[in-house]
């Protein structure tokens, strides 16, 4: 059983890695700082470590999908991240891709199980 769990953990981790970016982009139409985003994502059941999210935010910024500003008004300076114009466009397209992927995959698995919600049979 522990063997199965190991495989599952590894595959889940891979799936998470790919979907995390969509999750992050979806939350940044308004500026957020790193840790508030960690709390929010974890609260919504998307598990993420700060040690993964912080570097990811920087990478997305470097790719031009996010913009950042240091906010020094609060008690301590925090770096706020927000979608750039390009980032917002990319997110819309990525979301569509995601929806299509989910639909196709569900449909595919439905076929294999011997029929699906669309009423198609093999």
């Amino acid at each position: 059983m522990s063997d199965i769990k190991q495989h599952l953990d590894k595959l889940t981790q891979e799936l998470r890695r790919g979907t995390l970016t969509i999750g992050v982009l979806s939350q940044l139409s308004k500026p957020q700082y790193g840790y508030s985003l960690v709390t929010k994502l974890n609260g919504e059941g998307i598990h993420v470590e700060p040690g993964t999210l912080y570097p990811l935010l920087r990478r997305l910024e470097k790719q031009g999908l996010l913009e950042s500003t240091w906010n020094t008004d609060e008690a301590r300076p925090r770096k706020y991240y927000m979608l750039s114009k390009r980032g917002a466009e990319v997110f819309e397209l990525l979301w569509q891709e995601w929806e299509e992927m989910v639909d196709s995959l569900n449909h595919l698995i439905g076929l294999e199980k011997g029929g699906d919600s669309d009423g198609n049979h093999r």
């Binding site: 790193g34 912080y54 920087r58 301590r76 300076p77 770096k79």
Partner: peptide, 8 residues
């Protein structure tokens, strides 16, 4: 990164 980590 140092400042960011400190905040975190």
């Amino acid at each position: 990164i140092s400042q960011e980590l400190k905040g975190l």
